[in-house]
Simulated scan of single mutants.
Amino acid sequence: MSKNNLIGGTAARIAGLLACCALALSASAQQPATNPPVTTTAANNVASNTNTTNAVATSDADDRYRIGPGDVLDIRIFNRPNLSRDSVRVEGNGMIRMPLIDTEVQAACKTEGELAKEIAGRYTKFYRNPQVDVFIKEYHSKQVAIIGAVNEQSRFELQRRIRLLELLTYAKGPSTKAGQTINIVHAPPALVCQKPETDETDTGLSSYKLSETLQGQAQANPYIEPGDIITLPEANQVFVVGNVFTPLTIPLKEPITLSRAVAMAGGVKQDSKKDKVRIVRQEPGTTTSKEIVVDLTAIEKKRAEDIALMPNDIIDVPTSAGKTLLRSLISTVVPSVAQLPIRVIP
């Protein structure tokens, strides 16, 4: 084979390879580009994280203190002492006034940062990039009170939003006389800054089970609104008197039977007429009362039904007059006889 033929064959093969590469590149360019699929789990995780972030941000925003009528503010404008103001009281309509600003500025329902941003925006036509800081000096717009069967009745000035259970802890918790309910009396709001969680504020009174509030259950642990008065009514009571070791008053926080009430009073003493225990019960809505005679011995021996007590029942355990008289005579006569001189009869 000649040298020229060898060179020509090699060139032909190279040309063929280049042609094949060009066709492959052309075909690849004509195919639509595809993106790697996004798995459902990854998408759900992104959405979940976004929702969680939004929920946290919303919660933080809800808990921030919002300025109200009567609050006193300090307003500082950097390098502008002539515009800064001390002890600015928010008017009843929620407005304040600032130098050089013709109209009033709404302070109510805003946080410190939101009001600072509002004032800075008003001053941009006089100064370039004014720096404004707002501080709440005195809190007066968010007063609430808690009364009734708590260990420390008091009024509070809120500096942030709190829930019912937290306020109850500041009152040192419910007392031993507390009943089963907790009530919130709502005052008409001077300014509605946020939509209430429920429509119960329209009725003026909300009632919750105290046990659920103490457990922190959401439906019984609402946010406290300005002007709210929280009341804890005392529980209904029953009274145990007569021939028992510890006569006492028992809060009726839960159903209590006759035998349990007597046991809580320490039990009956000697010479008690256990078959003649009286329950004095007042008829609801009237001033008349009736007596129910109960055999406590039969109840203890499961021969009679244990009676459930009603509010304001009086349990009277009577004394057996004959046994008491005999015991009294014995206790008086025996010591006297023992002191007599002994004589011998021959």
Rank of each mutant, 00 (worst) to 15 (best):
S328M: 09
V185D: 11
G16A: 14
T58C: 07
G148W: 02
S26R: 07
I314H: 01
L309H: 05
I315N: 01
Q153S: 13
V344H: 01
P341K: 08
Q159H: 09
G9N: 14
D62K: 13
K137H: 09
K177S: 13
S154N: 15
A61I: 08
E291K: 06
P196D: 04
P69N: 00
Q217G: 03
I14K: 11
Q270S: 09
L210C: 06
Y65E: 07
Y208R: 09
L25N: 08
T286Q: 01
M95V: 15
S272D: 06
P188Y: 00
V262F: 06
I224C: 01
V144K: 03
T286P: 00
Q31D: 02
P311E: 05
T201F: 05
I77C: 02
T176S: 11
K177E: 13
P341S: 09
G227D: 04
D271G: 04
A218K: 11
G9A: 12
Q30Y: 06
Q153P: 12
I77M: 04
L258G: 06
T10E: 06
V238T: 05
D295K: 00
V88Y: 07
S289E: 03
E300S: 03
K276N: 14
D202R: 08
N236A: 13
R122S: 07
G94P: 08
S331R: 14
T39C: 06
Q194S: 11
A19Q: 14
S28N: 09
N221G: 00
M98Q: 15
M310N: 13
L18C: 14
S154K: 14
L205S: 07
I342G: 03
K125Y: 03
A61Q: 09
D60A: 08
I136H: 01
D133Y: 12
V277L: 04
A27C: 14
D271K: 03
V144R: 04
R303L: 14
S48L: 13
P99E: 01
T201V: 10
Q143F: 00
L214I: 03
V88K: 09
V337L: 13
T201Q: 11
K323Q: 10
N5K: 15
D313W: 02
F245D: 07
